[in-house]
Design a binder for these strands. Sequence first.
DNA 1: GCCAACGTTGGC
DNA 2: GCCAACGTTGGC
Length: 156
Amino acid sequence: MNYWLFKSEPDVFGIDHLADRPNQTEPWDGVRNYQARNFLRDDIKTGDLVLFYHSSCKQVGIAGVAEVVREGYPDALQFNPESKYFDPKSNPDAPRWFSVDVKFRKKFKQVLSLQAIKANPDITELGIVKKGHRLSIMPVTPHEWSLLLAMTGEAL
DNA sequence: GCCAACGTTGGC
DNA sequence: GCCAACGTTGGC
């Protein structure tokens, strides 16, 4: 079982949107970065846990937890000409982009702010605290996971 | 395969 | 809205 952090803009799709979905489940699609794609395709497995991170908003930070309920499958949007994520160069026989499905697990009472995370001297390697790190999907070590969860003061 | 130009990300 | 950092594109 592995841990991850997924970034999302809450104005577009936040933790509340996920909680409101049928079955509280949603495809994590539209990822168009190769490094993140590789995680989605190869490494993110059913049962893995995800820190749901809110970016580009008022309260930047970790808003809750989700769980992977379906692992790597081709992102349907890449074949949909109506979608802004349409990729004319992607071939259905060898899809370029992948999705996983995530299910709502928990919304923290308070967003764990990026500021607080950066202030924790034990968390220096996590992508979001590193300057210029723009990956929308990144691994989280078990140690980081327990530190972060402890900071929220909440249990899963 | 280099690299300049361009577009995007994302904190502030 | 600014702008630094980064990824991608495409001419050569």
